[in-house]
Design a protein around this nucleic acid. Structure first.
Lengths: 139, 139
DNA sequence: TTAAGTGCAAAATCTTTGCAAATGT
DNA sequence: ACATTTGCAAAGATTTTGCACTTAA
C-alpha cells in the first residue's frame, strides 16, 4: 500500500518524503474529497502548514490530485483516477456536496449528459457540483 | 432604471442607499457575473471595502444576488433571475468560465439534462461550471 | 427619532515568499 | 555531494468584528 504511494511519487519525479506519503494516505483513506483545513488538522504537528500548501499544489500540478473548490470557496482534494496526467483536458467532474456533513464526494462513474453551448463558446472542462444530503446524512 | 433598483431593495426590507444602488448598477451592467475584486475596483473611493462585503452578503441572503465561486475560489456575483426568494431551493445554475478573459457567464436559459444520483443521495441544487473560451475570446 | 447602514481601525485568517537547515537520491 | 524539500519567520492578502458616526424612513 505504501509502496504504491512511493511509486506514484517517483513516477512524477517527486522525492519520497514522509510528509508527502502522509498526505497521500490521508486523502486516499477518505471516501470523499478532503478539505484542506481537514488535512491540515490531520497532519498537525507532523507537517507544517506551509509545506502542506506546497505539497498540495505540487500534487495538483503533477496530476496526482484533483482540486475541487466547494461552494464555500474552500479547496478540497481527491486522488485522480487512473489516467490523469497534467495534459489531460476536456475532462468532466461530478461532485456532490453534502450540506449536512460537508463532505465532498467524487462521482467519477457518472457521466454528464451533453450540454449544448451557445454559438462561439468552446468547452474545455465540465464541473458539476450537486448540493444536497448524502447517503449517510439522509436517515 | 434606478427606480427599479430602489424597489428591489425595499421589497427586501433593505434601505435604499447610494452604496447599494451603485453595487446593483455595476452588477446589472455586466453581461456576466462580476468578481468581487472587480466590483471592489469599480466602487473604489465610493464604497468601503468592508461595506461591500456586507452589502454583497446581505444581497445574497435576501436572494437578490447569486454568489458563484469560480475555479480560483474567487466569489462572483450576478443578479438573480425573476423569482429567487431566499426560500427557493432545488435550483439549477449553469456558469461558463472563460479561461482567457476570466469572465463568468450565467447561462440561465439552459437547463441541465437530468442526472441520476446513487441511492440515498438527495439533491438540492445543481451547479454546472463549464470552462473554456467564450464567444469574444474565441476569435 | 431611531433603527439600519457606513467607515475606519484593528483583529483574525488565509496564502505566499525567502532563506537556512534537513532530507532523499 | 547535490538538488529538493522542509520549517520557520515574516510579508501580503482576504475576511471578520467592534464601535462611533451618518443616513434613510
Amino acid at each position: 500500500m505504501e509502496k504504491q504511494f512511493a511509486g506514484l511519487l517517483s513516477q512524477h519525479e517527486l522525492k519520497v518524503t514522509s510528509a508527502r506519503l502522509l498526505v497521500l494516505q490521508i486523502i486516499s483513506a477518505a471516501n470523499s474529497a478532503v478539505s484542506q483545513p481537514k488535512i491540515e488538522t490531520q497532519v498537525n504537528g507532523k507537517v507544517d502548514r506551509v509545506t502542506l500548501y506546497r505539497i498540495l499544489s505540487a500534487f495538483e500540478q503533477k496530476g496526482i490530485l484533483h482540486k475541487v473548490i466547494d461552494l464555500n470557496g474552500t479547496a478540497n482534494y481527491a486522488l485522480c483516477s487512473s489516467k490523469c496526467t497534467s495534459h489531460t483536458h476536456h475532462d468532466e467532474h461530478l461532485h456532490f456536496n453534502c450540506t449536512n456533513c460537508l463532505k465532498v464526494y467524487c462521482m467519477n462513474d457518472f457521466s454528464l449528459p451533453p450540454v449544448q453551448l451557445p454559438n462561439g463558446f468552446t468547452a474545455g472542462s465540465f464541473n458539476l457540483s450537486i448540493t444536497g444530503l448524502c447517503k449517510e446524512c439522509n436517515g
